[in-house]
């Protein structure tokens, strides 16, 4: 699938509407992270998140996550209409606490990986990915 110019405009309008609300609203992804961590503290770092600095097309962006000793890693795309991307739960026979996939990004934004460690603590890493707008019909 692809996001048309109209979709992007609608997204933009939505973002403006959100920021102009007088009440404090949860930052993008906060709710999802809270649901994942149960509100526990999240340390910065300790998770490796590989994603291109500039993605050639937001429709198919390769990302890899890795966190030694993690039982699960959640990936969020904070600038997407729905920040949820995927949660990797590592089983008994996982050979490493790492995985790669290809994701959709609606535009330039922060991608976040939150790891739940074996000892019950949490760690996260954020990476900004610039998404270019194609030249021809993109």
């Amino acid at each position: 699938m692809e996001f048309s110019r109209r979709d992007t405009l609608v997204l933009g309008a939505g973002a403006v509407a959100l920021t102009s609300l007088p009440l404090r609203v949860a930052a993008a992804g906060e709710e999802e992270i809270d649901a994942f961590t149960g509100g526990a503290d999240v340390a910065e770092g300790g998770v490796t998140l590989d994603a291109p600095e500039i993605a050639e097309n937001g429709n198919t962006v390769p990302v890899s996550v890795s966190a030694e000793g993690a039982t699960a890693i959640m990936v969020l795309a904070l600038g997407n209409p729905n920040p949820d991307v995927a949660t990797f739960n590592f089983g008994e026979l996982s050979g490493s606490q790492s995985a790669s996939t290809r994701i959709r990004l609606a535009g330039t934004q922060d991608v976040v990986a939150v790891a739940k460690m074996g000892d019950g603590s949490f760690a996260k890493t954020t990476k900004n990915v610039k998404v270019t707008i194609g030249g021809c019909g993109g």
Binding site: N82, D84, V85, F88, N89, S94, A99, T101, I103
Partner: peptide
Amino acid sequence: VLDVEMHGAI
């Protein structure tokens, strides 16, 4: 081995 919860951004 692995259990992945997937959303529309895949």
